[in-house]
Design a protein around this nucleic acid. Structure first.
Lengths: 255, 255
DNA sequence: GCGTTAATGTTAAAATTATAACATTCAGTG
DNA sequence: CACTGAATGTTATAATTTTAACATTAACGC
């Protein structure tokens, strides 16, 4: 609420921009005030910095740990997505060029890619790129464009063409809705072009969806279920649900 | 060093993948062991998880706070860069389309962009994109391509053309070396094309360099000093150093 | 200058977290 | 089955962090 307080916060924020933590003790010295003042600065007004065990850390800073606790529900969600991704890993082979879709479903996959010797990942999602950027064994190709915050991904005119020019091996696609008759859909229209392009060029197409997505139809339709070679899901009833499919070659894997 | 210990770590790691923190108390419950065991798991062996004020946080996870303390030196560097960026802000106008270069110099600028009503930022750097992605008032255009970890930025064939197609207002360029006679240079060759393209299309060209860069020549030359309209630096002697320039229109600002 | 109020500083107590030492459990062996 | 050693649990203690109450300082208007 104070002018100087705001200034200090800005200063600390910048000190923390590139990650790392700062002890309140050091922050106090840096700003030339007492620890208590630093605490108050950070506590009494909403800011990007939070206090964790005596250290300042960026709360919501780009690509930095948001400091909030996991709810039990969230933790269980991770469990599901993790299991799905474990299954997906088994389809990946050394040297593959993977297209990885946006969303949260495939995030747990990325830490598991470090076990390979050499891979290439193509994506149009910022969070995927961030995760892959830390892996020294994975070549990262990010398809840029205008950023859409809602899906943490990029979109551009040339994306379809850019994807089709790449030698993508396997397309790992996620979705917000899967319906036997109405096909596979997502929320955002700018995701349609990259998803379709990846499906068109990839040699193998995997759809990864957790059970909650079945029977749902979302605004942006992008593929038929028969466009996929493999469906990875945690739904025990998925095989029956997908029975409606004519294409016999579709393989369903329940994680 | 234990089988079960490793398993627990993996489990916790996954719970933390998408950011967030986990209290040792909760982690203990989640794993069905005592807090002490969790502490030992995390402490006694090298792992991606670290313990911060009673909570588990990912240490080096993609886009997540690495948990180490800032050195005093680092902190003072931020001070300098922050001051430079404060000066740069004064050149920015409402509605501008800014090209923002890669590197650490311009990072402190980004948090100050939130004061504007509406801006567009064009960049080819991942860390810049991450910072801008959190600002709702800034349109972000990321130029993608193959990722270069050394500079946290992307490079591609089409980048030069892509940049020249954009209506960039002001180019904010950083450099690793500035020399009167040998011009302005950087470390990585893939940065040359985007920098040059931005300089070519922008209406106003700013070079932002701290004092330590003067007199240095780096492998990749990309511009002459006379290509810039404004030089923002913290070196008091900069005006003299830049005296060698023939072009009178070059404006030097000492932060 | 004086009074008023907001901002900051100081201190001591409370709460929390970390550490160390020792107790217990468990798996594997002879 | 007892022995062994690693792994885990328990407890008490030490260190640290947080909070709250109050003291001090600085800023501002009259």
């Amino acid at each position: 609420m104070n002018d100087r307080s705001a200034q200090r916060l800005a200063m600390l924020q910048e000190a923390l921009t590139s990650g790392g933590t700062l002890h309140v003790r050091d922050a106090a010295e840096l700003c030339g005030v007492s620890e208590m003042t630093i605490r108050r600065d950070v506590t009494t007004q909403p800011s990007a910095i939070s206090l964790l065990g005596g250290r300042l850390v960026m709360a919501n800073y780009p690509g930095v740990t948001p400091v909030y606790d996991l709810t039990e529900q969230q933790a269980s969600h991770y469990q599901i997505k993790h299991r799905l991704c474990q299954r997906v890993v088994s389809f990946i082979e050394e040297g593959d060029t993977l297209f990885i879709d946006c969303g949260s479903t495939l995030i747990p996959l990325l830490s598991q890619l470090s076990h390979f010797r050499e891979l290439t990942v193509v994506t149009y999602a910022l969070n995927v790129a961030n995760a892959v950027a830390t892996l020294s064994n994975v070549r990262l190709v990010l398809l840029g464009g205008l950023f859409y915050a809602s899906s943490q991904s990029f979109g551009s005119d040339g994306m379809r063409a850019a994807i089709e020019r790449l030698g993508i091996n396997k397309a790992l696609i996620s979705a917000a809705g899967v319906d036997c008759e109405r096909g596979v859909s997502c929320f955002h229209f700018h995701e349609v072009a990259p998803k379709q392009a990846a499906i068109a060029t990839a040699m193998q197409r995997l759809l990864i969806v957790d059970a909650s997505k079945f029977g749902l139809v979302r605004p942006a339709y992008f593929a038929a279920l028969s466009d996929f070679d493999i469906v990875v899901t945690d739904d025990e009833h998925a095989p029956e649900l997908l029975d409606c499919l004519p294409k016999a070659s579709l393989s369903v894997t329940v994680a």
